[in-house]
């Protein structure tokens, strides 16, 4: 999971101020546990676009893609791969 550490740092800073990145398990369900709601999801997507230069208009966005750090990592990995291939 190449992006997991950066994603954890972002999620913790933005949504979990009293938690350290190390405490956040990559499989912790961010949606079911109310860390990220539908508005929070927009923040996550904006961050991914900004940080990884991914144009999310060209990929399908489903909430399941963002429900854990591992899922976000997989999403970024796939999107970056596609971008590299397409470029």
């Amino acid at each position: 999971m190449p992006y997991a550490q950066a994603i954890k740092e972002f999620v913790v800073e933005e949504f979990l101020p009293d938690v350290s990145p190390a405490e956040l398990d990559a499989d912790y369900d961010l949606l079911a546990n109310g860390v990220i709601d539908s508005l929070g999801l927009l923040k996550v997507i904006a961050w991914i676009e900004d940080r990884y230069g991914i144009d999310t208009d060209t990929v399908e966005l489903r909430p399941e893609s963002f429900h854990t750090v591992a899922a976000i990592d997989a999403f970024v990995t796939r999107a970056s791969y596609r971008r590299t291939k397409g470029a």
Partner: peptide
Amino acid sequence: LNSLSLRGHLAQRLSRAAIPAALLI
């Protein structure tokens, strides 16, 4: 206890909208 496990406690019993957006220990 940290807020991650406390969120899990709430998530078992509440609808998602009722889980506090900000939860501090």
